[in-house]
Structure formats: C-alpha cells, structure tokens
Amino acid sequence: MPEPGVERQLPTDEAQDLIQLVRDIAQREIAPHAAEEEDAGRFPRETFTLLSSSGLLGLPYDGEFGGDQPYEVYLQVLEELAAARLTVGLGVSVHSLSCHALANFGTKEQRSEHLPDMLGGGLLGAYCLSEPSSGSDAASLRTKAVRDGGDWVLTGTKAWITHGGVADFYTVLARSGGEGAKGITAFLVPGDAEGLSAAVPEKKMGMKGSPTAQVHFDGVRISDARRIGDEGQGFQIALSALDSGRLGIAACAIGVAQAALDAAVAYAKDRSQFGRPIADFQGLRFMLADMATQIEAGRALYLSAARLRDAGRPFSKQAAMAKLLCTDAAMKVTTDAVQVLGGYGYTADFPVERFMREAKVLQIVEGTNQIQRMVIARHLAGPETR
C-alpha cells in the first residue's frame, strides 16, 4: 500500500489526521489478510463494520450523518483502502454509490429515517442498475415496478451486483412507466424483503473476496415511502450517482497501481543480478519512472475532477476522463510490475499478479472505458448524429 512518504494534497489538518487513521486501519486490519482472504474468496464483512463504526462510510455526506468531508478527501481515503485490498476500497465506493440516491434526492423524512444506519450504523449497500440484457445501455432496463395501492411490486433480475446477497439494502432502478429513460424510478429495497434473492456469485478473474451476483426480485412488495425522488426521475438519479462513482473507481485504480509500484520498487532494490541490484539497470529504472508518472498523472486528474464537484461545478466530462485514464494506467502499471518481478511476478507468492487481475475489472465497471470515451466525445463534439 502507499508508503507514508506519498505526497498527498489535503486541505486541512483534520483531513491529514483522517488519512493517517485510514492508513493505520489498512496496515493493521486489512493488508495483512488480503492475499489469504482473496485466495479463499472470503468477504470481509467485519472490516466494513469496523469502517462504519469509525465513520468512514459516510465521509462524503452531510455532517449530521457523520460525514462532511470534501470529495477530494474521501477519494484519497478510497485510494488508501484500495491499495491495501481492492475488495474493501471498491466496496466502500459501491456503498457510497448506493447511498447517493437517498442522500441527494430523498425527502427529509426519508433521510432522517434511513441515512444514519446506512452511513454509520453498520449497514452495507448495493446498487442495482445493470441487468443481464442491459449494461452499457442502462435506459433499456426491464425490471418492472408496478403500483398496487400504496405499494410497489418489483419483478425482474439485476446483474453484476457488487455485494449481491450480502447487502442490507439495495438501491434499485426499475421501469415504472413507458420505454426509455423517462420510464425509470428509483427505490430503496431492504435486503431481507420477501421475494428478494441472490444467485450464486460469479466466478471472477480477480476480486474473489467481493461477491458479484445476480439479484432476483420475485414480486417484491415495498411501500411508496421507499420510492426515491419522483416517478420517472430514476434515470436522472442514476446518472448523477455514476459521475461521482466513476471518480471512486478512478481513485481505487490509482490505489492498486500505487501498491503495484511499491512492490516493484522494493523487489528491484532487493533483487541482484550480475553483481548488482536490478534497480541499477537503466531499462528497469525507466520502466519504474514511467509507472510512477502515470500514477501521479492519474491522481492529479481525479483530484481535479473532485475539486470541481466540491465547488458545485460540472464535472461529468472530467469524471469520465479520470475513470478512463486512471484505470488504463492501473492496467499498464500492474502489468509492468509483473514484468519487473519476472517469473516471480507470475506466481501467487507475490501480490503483483493479483493486482494485475484486479486492475482489469476497473476498466469495465461503472461504464466501460469505451463508454467513457463516448461520454468525453459528446462533451467535445455534441451528441452523435443518426
């Protein structure tokens, strides 16, 4: 994980103390068990309980709910956690994403009733947008929400759901009206609702400790009091959450890349060939320099986007840019880290092969990098003509 000497741009002494707290937890509670638990496919629920009790699951939200940190600080917390274990860093990002709808579009009564437990009461959330037949084309989702008196009945299947089957609540986007984006509404569904079930988790290349599963809604009945925002506002709510969530993915990617660089540098300084450390050879030194430069560039970009968000300015284009650049950089840096370690890098005895497998998914989740390029291009040249 990042060494204490990593330069961080933090706005206050309080933020500096917060980062130190996160590093202490990461070094003491998370990193030592990461390899073993990932290999065993074990989800660290107790870690999320610890983070919740430490006030780390509500950081980007209002102070009355235990947060009130700038987004630029919250993202650097994510980076630290992801460097220790991506399952934890990404899990916190997904949890924050699942709270976004209620925190930003819920009524005062809804926020008062649910947010304290969601942000600091030990609960864990999941975000249900994607479906088996609608991933990048999220507006074509088919899960239905049908009114029945003062209730809604949800029927359908969500796919690729992080924390599927272990979450205490699900923020669900479902079709309550006609086709397209305007027919979608958001709901807050308790994890123990009757008719809600999760499939066996997917068998993944990496992040084996983080359950990713289909979630089935078989006539799940919830009160209209759990509808978030207006009917038909769901897609707008989803998009507003994704801009922030993409920055979370960018920060996690830089955390994984930093961990890979730190491992590569340590190995290169310790490993000797031809009578001297391999870190003395120019070809390898240049590789390390390029890796470090990509990390710093990615960190600067996601922080720049976060500061726009903190200032209340548009940041959608910059969020897409940050997600694109940071995750591509993580893939390149982790691959190069394996190369630095040579044959050892290809074995599970060293963590860089795990970092490389984990980096791949970051180019896919919360909008593939091809989708990010489409988003950026639309900001530059306008919508595509048909």
Rank of each mutant, 00 (worst) to 15 (best):
G5H: 10
E7I: 14
E7T: 13
P11T: 07
T12H: 10
I19F: 05
L21G: 08
A26C: 08
R28Q: 11
A34P: 02
E37L: 13
F43M: 00
R45H: 05
E46G: 03
T47I: 01
T47K: 01
F48V: 02
S52N: 01
G55V: 00
L57D: 00
G58H: 03
P70D: 01
L75S: 03
A83Y: 08
A84Y: 04
R85P: 00
V94Y: 02
C99M: 10
H100A: 10
F105C: 06
R111E: 00
R111P: 00
A126M: 00
L129Q: 11
S134C: 09
D137A: 14
R142D: 09
K144Q: 12
V153K: 06
K158Q: 01
W160A: 13
T162P: 02
T162Y: 04
H163Y: 02
G164Y: 11
G183D: 02
I184L: 15
T185N: 07
A193R: 03
L196F: 00
A198G: 04
M205Q: 11
G206N: 03
S210F: 10
H216Q: 08
G229K: 04
G232L: 12
Q233K: 07
A241S: 12
D243M: 14
D243P: 15
A259V: 11
V265C: 05
A268S: 10
R276W: 10
I278R: 08
D280Y: 04
Q282P: 03
R285A: 08
L288C: 10
T293Y: 15
Q294E: 12
K317N: 11
Q318H: 14
A320L: 13
A322I: 14
C326N: 14
A330E: 05
A337K: 03
L341R: 01
G345V: 09
K360V: 08
V361N: 08
Q363A: 15
E366D: 10
A377E: 10
L380Y: 07
T385E: 13
